[in-house]
Write a protein that binds this DNA or RNA. Sequence first.
DNA 1: TGTACATCAGTGAACGCGCGTTCACTGATGTAC
DNA 2: TGTACATCAGTGAACGCGCGTTCACTGATGTAC
Lengths: 196, 196
Amino acid sequence: VARYGKEQKHATRQRIVESAGRRFKRDGIDNSGVAALMADAGLTNGAFYAHFASKDDLVATALADQLRAQAEHLRALPPGNPGLEQFVRWYLSVEHRDAPEDGCPSAALLDEIGRSQPSIKEAFTDGSLLYADELAARLAPEDPLSVRAQVLTVFAMMLGAVQLSRALADRRLADEILEEAIESALAQFGALNQSR
Amino acid sequence: VARYGKEQKHATRQRIVESAGRRFKRDGIDNSGVAALMADAGLTNGAFYAHFASKDDLVATALADQLRAQAEHLRALPPGNPGLEQFVRWYLSVEHRDAPEDGCPSAALLDEIGRSQPSIKEAFTDGSLLYADELAARLAPEDPLSVRAQVLTVFAMMLGAVQLSRALADRRLADEILEEAIESALAQFGALNQSR
DNA sequence: TGTACATCAGTGAACGCGCGTTCACTGATGTAC
DNA sequence: TGTACATCAGTGAACGCGCGTTCACTGATGTAC
């Protein structure tokens, strides 16, 4: 409504970024209009361009923010294997599957990101590596880069399992896949851990 | 342009279903408008409703058609392990990653399907089980149902790896994930095969 | 310290555009006689 | 066999609507004097 200091504007921008991240994950990027995104933050559509150059700019920013937050969340878990197991069990939980708006942006939006313009893919790539290297550091603290691709492959399984569990109309089978995926992820991370 | 026999109408419908399947996988469901879908089939938008009740009706039909075709393609591969390995190597190939329009609908559209209405999820579920049971039959011919969830979990890894490989801006890392996923899929299918 | 002014985040209407769907119409066909 | 007619797949314009983006305007603020 008015002009405040720089901190106020930055706080408003961050509010938009965070509520947009939630809506994108719930409804998809294409299904989230600028007017709805701004309404979520208690604003009207016109103010959008005082904060972002375009919708794609917000998409890239929100994606980076979500992945950074998730990497931080991961860093806050207990060190070593217990934290890793806690992460796997949360990621592949029924709760995470049923609340995409609070969950992993990759599980919610990965195929839409794959069809996006380069700037969005780059934001996603940078954020994902932050995230993956946090996992890699728990498995091979002295050389995280050596297990990066393996970690990403196990992560691909986890994300695919969540997507599949969300898309299947058969609830029992959907739950079974999550359980199977927990077992598989723990086994694969365990094997990586052993061979370091 | 005119009235032909019932076969003609069915052929036209099938032409729409197939070209729509390709466009959905390339551009996403939301980004594929009815007018563009009909133009792909050499028709104009108005004729659409002579063949389908709604766009969602076409989405469900195209999804079912794609998954059925993929299951048939799978059935045509050499029996047993060699065919399975061929499938894994095709699915996780650079060619499949770079040509989503010719590839697996799950890898291209899974998170969009997860946000769709029940009728679309049901079509996807039925088609996926057809597909998964074809894989399961190669691993446990006497009791395919016993390995269904495990097969779907390995499949989730494969589909997640393709999506991740499409979304990453780092080409080298994207390729590395595909290779890692081939190794992992073959190992996991091998383990399933051994324990039957 | 009090007043005049420049700033600019936010408003809300409007822009052209493409969406899914409807509809009056066309005209080649298969059918009835 | 030849002619009149009913059928209906396909046409293309139009419907209301929401999209991303632009823009003239507002008004509370921080700043200059």
